[in-house]
Amino acid sequence: MPTFNRTLWRLAGKLANRLALQPQPAVNLDFTPKRFAQLQSLAERIEQSVHRGWPIALQHSVRELQTQLIRSCRHLDEIAESLSTPLLSVLPTQRLLYEELKTLSEEFEDVEFDLREETISVITTPITLEEIELGRFRVVLSGKDLVTGLSQVIAVDANPAVSRPDITHPHVNDNRLCEGDATVPLQNALWDGRFVDFFLIIQQTLLTYNSSSPYVSLSDWNGTRCRICDDSVSDDDSCCCDHCEQDVCDSCSTYCDHCYQTSCDDCRETCSRCEERSCASCLAVCPDCRLKYCSNCLINQLCEDCDAARNEEANAEEEEESDTSSESAVHTDRVGEAAIPA
């Protein structure tokens, strides 16, 4: 013979009283002739206009009838939609709620009831989403919140997002589940007093990841992913490269010694002379050798070697020119000044 639990029975009674206070949905089933009388009147005017051959009046009445028909359709749509929710809730009995509370302990391993606070508390199975272990969650439903359907979802073995320590699940914020597709079934389960369904729906929602609207996406759960080394790091240990504007970790980025901007490893290049790494925009190409150099290693926009080579070339040219001019001073041609030996 099943044992009777007096505490659960009393809690069921309190919760039944709470549910009895839920507001009934508003009913607006208006099919009165008055609402449709205008349509009939317009139809008669149209017939009359056709019969008498009044095209302008006909056009006006047809337009008016179209407008009224659209309004009436909207009104009928609203009625049809309102009928999709129960017009009168059948209040769950204390006995039904008692059975629900008893079954909760069979469905979930860890269930607690607090008669004074009128709370039901259930611990879910461990939640793992895309190989990220988020741990178990305690779901607390208070009798005071039965009508609103708000429950608290508290991480038991919290593994919050690295970037947001307050987010313990992609769809939980401030201990509230963002219910999404679960909203209506949760509300209906509560109004019917189906507590087992209510907690099961919450658990299944926690076990599902909706990548289109998480508070923190699972791909960023363990921090920002460095574009270069692919490690996940917290926001404090990452930065954005000023050149490629991608997130990188501190190890894969540094300040450029020349412009002091943050630069990731991929956006830095090595000076061909001093071998120091600078951001690409702080290096210039030597027009002669086509290699890249930092501003410290460029002289007159040339690298040191090419500058020296050009200087040598220039000196050689100068020397050649001066040799030529001294020779011409001895053997000046076609000027009538030939040297005469003594």
Partner: peptide, 25 residues
């Protein structure tokens, strides 16, 4: 309210519920 086998025959007054395994928040 109890897990059920596929071949369980339903009885008068039974209560059966289907809850999706995946519900998107």
């Amino acid at each position: 309210r109890q897990p059920a086998a596929a071949d369980q025959v339903l009885q008068e007054g039974d209560r059966i519920s289907f809850t999706p395994v995946k519900i998107e928040g």
